[in-house]
Design a binder for these strands. Sequence first.
DNA 1: TATGAATGAGCGTTCATTCAT
DNA 2: GATGAATGAACGCTCATTCAT
Lengths: 204, 204, 204, 204
Amino acid sequence: MTKQGSIEETKRNQILKAAEEVFAQKGFFKATIEEIAEQAQIAKGTVYLYFPDKPSIFINLLAKKLNETKMRLLEIKAETLSSEEKLRKIFDYLSKTLFKPKYAQLFQTHSEKVITLTNNIMSEFKEKVTPQLKEIIKIIAEIINQGIKDREFKKFDPKLLTLLFISTIRSLSLRKFYPLNYHYSANALKELFFEILKPRGKND
Amino acid sequence: MTKQGSIEETKRNQILKAAEEVFAQKGFFKATIEEIAEQAQIAKGTVYLYFPDKPSIFINLLAKKLNETKMRLLEIKAETLSSEEKLRKIFDYLSKTLFKPKYAQLFQTHSEKVITLTNNIMSEFKEKVTPQLKEIIKIIAEIINQGIKDREFKKFDPKLLTLLFISTIRSLSLRKFYPLNYHYSANALKELFFEILKPRGKND
Amino acid sequence: MTKQGSIEETKRNQILKAAEEVFAQKGFFKATIEEIAEQAQIAKGTVYLYFPDKPSIFINLLAKKLNETKMRLLEIKAETLSSEEKLRKIFDYLSKTLFKPKYAQLFQTHSEKVITLTNNIMSEFKEKVTPQLKEIIKIIAEIINQGIKDREFKKFDPKLLTLLFISTIRSLSLRKFYPLNYHYSANALKELFFEILKPRGKND
Amino acid sequence: MTKQGSIEETKRNQILKAAEEVFAQKGFFKATIEEIAEQAQIAKGTVYLYFPDKPSIFINLLAKKLNETKMRLLEIKAETLSSEEKLRKIFDYLSKTLFKPKYAQLFQTHSEKVITLTNNIMSEFKEKVTPQLKEIIKIIAEIINQGIKDREFKKFDPKLLTLLFISTIRSLSLRKFYPLNYHYSANALKELFFEILKPRGKND
DNA sequence: TATGAATGAGCGTTCATTCAT
DNA sequence: GATGAATGAACGCTCATTCAT
């Protein structure tokens, strides 16, 4: 039974991994179940043994990625590092995972409007995705807050700084419209953010 | 003749307006030509007298919105205001128009990957959308640059600040995941951005 | 009035000429009224002032071509030539006009099954096309018959020879599947036909 | 597995049979996939599991019919009969199958101009249809050639006679415009052809 | 008479989902 | 559980035909 459960878990994950690949390449609508099944090396019908429909795959993929992210962020938070060092680690991690330009379309927060969600799926979304996102934001906010307490960071509203932090990462995908060297710009944006965080001089 | 021309212009715009409504509500893929036609109060076939296909409607809508935005930004840039006042005006304008949460999905920079663009349409995209976006970024960058010259703003890289500026506006759509009063937060984010811009005076 | 009538006749003919071009290039179904109108340098709607619908254009084109053919055949028949010379002239004429490979698809005798003919149009077909074709066959049959009477031709059933004559011309369009030099074959087929017609030896 | 394979073969053939019926009745353009599916007693979408598009169904139908024809012709060629007897058998076979008036429109050699063929389909056509047609012509030519060698037939160019042979069969479909009893005429045309083939004996 | 913008029925094709095996 | 053949609703697009000007 446990074995069965773990086999199922494995197949479920196979599908989610495949879905990640295909959704990232083609977007939700142009991705087909057949492609996902092929990528997962299973039959099309099998997908429906693990997920009731296409949006559900998407939502569970989001949930999984957000959960992984949350876990990693908690790890980083627990490390013995300065707040800035933690944030820098998170910046790098997020820009390589969740907010990688390649996945940008996956993690638009408006997905739920664009995808038709049956009532059941909608509640899955509300249960699985929204809370995770809130927790991620909360973790970052707590690190920023700690940084402020420790006078590592300037005294801005930590909630707002968190939004700004995420926006900064997401803005990396705008760079292509900008006449800047790509890698320079990625680092430069990061440095700009931390420059902003720095407290001013002695009297500050 | 002029009347005819203006009637045609009107119908084309009717369609684009309808498309804006429908695309914003449903996204590119769930929007149907029939719905757009209904919204525009014309027949389905009529749409194809003005646009060769669905992606073309989308691209021309983007182009139109970007053009309106560019025009407005140029106006604001030309006004007799401080750079900060100009940027504040632009912030408000963009958050009410292009980066309105409702339209957020329209203006993801990844559209061209998600939508299948035939070669013709692809070149329409490259001709009509990308340059406009670059110009908009350029206008903002020039205002920021002027502000720096005038010592209104701190001396950061104006190109990066422009990205941050836009990201800040876009981050407004993240707020719903955040336990903050909606309007408070919009203002607060704006204020945060301008706080960042402020130069550290001696007395600072 | 007569002038008007002649203007109308001219425009009607303009349309039929254009239709000939377009139908020959694209076939009945892929040809569009718009293309025919363009080719005739008139507006799409104008076509409908002269013909009630698309099949009618086609049928009237057939009728016109068949009528021209009939006229030419009557001329040839009336010339002071041997029957063989007349047939040779007709062979050349038909293979350059009605049964030109380019027009082959126009003059399949099964058109009326393939094209949807309303009852009105169907009767137009029966009135205008079928009788013309019969007359053409009759003219050729008469020439062959004369040739037989004059002992120029062997004594076969002239009706059958007429069918064979037409088939021989039509078979030119099969040549492309055949490993033969194109022009050689056209002439060779003609010569074969007349070889067949030749009476055998003295005692024949 | 073998069963599966044979089931698929059956369904593919079901579709081709249905397509034969519908194309013959309505022609390529007026035939709809839905009708073909209905005729085959399957759903519309199922058709697309076996053929990529409509032209492909048509081409594969042609290919199948031509292949059947080729096979039958090879059988007849191998029988112990005189060349004339073989040709008579072939004449009857072809006039009941490939060149049956009902199917005449299917087997016009101009199909490839009239139907829009994507590049893939075009190469399918060139691979599957043209060579088969050439082989059929070749088989007939060989029989005629044998007849000439055996002095059964008069010494005409066998390639041309083959064209004439096919044309004669195809000319059967012209008969309806001709004031002749239908069956009489079919036989009469056949006899005419063989009359032509007969060598002129000494006493001739 | 002439126009061409507008119409909308119709069709080819896709693909999420089902279900018999 | 696993399969993949089968389904059919849905949609983009075409084009013959109409009609207001």
